[in-house]
Computed example of a mutant assay.
Amino acid sequence: MTIGFRRFIFWIFVILFIAASVIITMLAQGWRFDLDSFKMVRTGGIFIKTTVSGAKIYVNDKYTGSTAGLLNYTKLVDDLAPKNYNLFIHKEGYYPWNKMVEVKNGLVTELFSVTLFPLDIKKIKIAQLPPQKISDFRIIDETIKIINNKKTGIANVYAIKGQFISSEKFKISTSTELISPDKNKKLYASGNKIWIEYLNDIKEEPSKKAGEKEIVATLELPILFLDWLKDSEHVIWFTSGELTITERDNRGGKRNSVKFYLNINPPIFWDIKNSDLYFFETDKEKSILYKINIE
């Protein structure tokens, strides 16, 4: 073997080593050859945080695992080429969640507020009170404060188990603007539309600028109740016989919504901290306070 040939073999191995090193480095950094676009792309991922453990995740109808964790139930689906994916999340006994999710070149799309709501919500009896006309009421510090006539502003106060305590002056706020728990958004109804106005910049996706407004829903029936969920990412409202919860996130051109059909009448009290919806059923003999929990 001549010296020239040996040098040739040596440089061939050097070139192969350099090429292999470059390829390994690019693969480690997430670069892949995309057959759809026929070019090198940097892969990204989808990070999912759900409200329940064991939620099954499907990407383009392919099972990719389940959410898990002690306090936060999360899952990272990685090594995804930059494009749109059909994301489907499901757990038995809960409404499924579905959205088209865009993965960008070398980035992770974050979904921090994937909430799975139960298919069935149970009506729980709280207290039985004497029959009375109820114009409005509140649940405060383990007491039930009932206003029979808003003009007088007198509230009958009962213990949470139903024992009468006293009557007292009590004023209920009539503001139609509802500030989110995170103080960044304002919710209100105008005509048959539900709006969100952004009070501060929202940096997390879907990002918004302070002062922006968007329509969450357009309804056919009058809105009898409207408020936020405690995560500041979902809105809840009630029309005649129908309780609806919808997410703020409209990425992929869709807001996930769930509906519960309930035979209840206003007034309604919403305990945002515990996600409890309170209402009365009244006949000639009694007024019964019930609650349903939507978590």
Rank of each mutant, 00 (worst) to 15 (best):
E205N: 14
Y198M: 07
A19I: 02
F137Y: 08
G162R: 01
L119A: 04
I179S: 08
T2F: 14
Y278G: 03
L178R: 11
T74F: 11
T51H: 06
E168L: 10
L119K: 06
T64W: 00
I24Q: 14
V103I: 04
K254E: 01
F269G: 08
G44Q: 05
I272P: 09
E242K: 11
R251M: 05
N250D: 15
W228A: 09
T43Y: 12
Q29A: 05
I121N: 03
S53P: 07
V235G: 00
S166F: 02
T246N: 04
E110D: 12
G211C: 03
S175W: 04
P181A: 07
E102T: 03
L289D: 06
V59P: 13
I292R: 12
T244K: 15
I23A: 14
K185P: 10
D36P: 03
P222Y: 09
V101L: 04
V216W: 08
N86V: 06
Q128A: 04
F38Y: 13
A20M: 06
V235E: 01
I294K: 09
K169Y: 13
V157M: 08
E110Y: 07
P130D: 08
A19Y: 08
E285D: 15
Y188D: 12
K169M: 08
P267R: 05
G106L: 03
P96V: 04
T74A: 11
F88Y: 15
I24A: 15
I236A: 01
R251G: 01
R255A: 07
K150P: 12
K161E: 06
K171V: 09
G30N: 11
R42Q: 14
D182C: 08
S53I: 05
N149S: 07
N156F: 01
G93L: 00
I292L: 09
E197V: 07
S173W: 02
I12G: 15
F260D: 12
T67R: 15
L107S: 07
Y278M: 06
T43M: 11
L80T: 05
K122W: 06
W11I: 05
G162F: 11
F47E: 10
F112V: 10
I140C: 03
N105F: 09
D249K: 05
G54K: 02
I89E: 09
S190N: 15
D283E: 04
D141R: 06
Q163S: 09
L199V: 02
S232N: 13
V14N: 06
N84W: 03
K133M: 13
I23P: 03
I24R: 14
N256I: 05
K151H: 05
E233F: 10
F280Y: 06
T143H: 12
I172R: 10
I196S: 00
T174D: 12
L27H: 13
P206M: 11
S66K: 15
K122L: 13
P266N: 12
N98C: 03
F164H: 00
K183M: 04
T246P: 00
L129H: 10
G65Y: 04
V77N: 10
G153K: 04
I24P: 07
N84V: 08
M26R: 12
A68V: 00
R6Q: 02
V52S: 10
W237D: 14
D283M: 05
H234Q: 11
L111V: 01
A127R: 14
E233S: 12
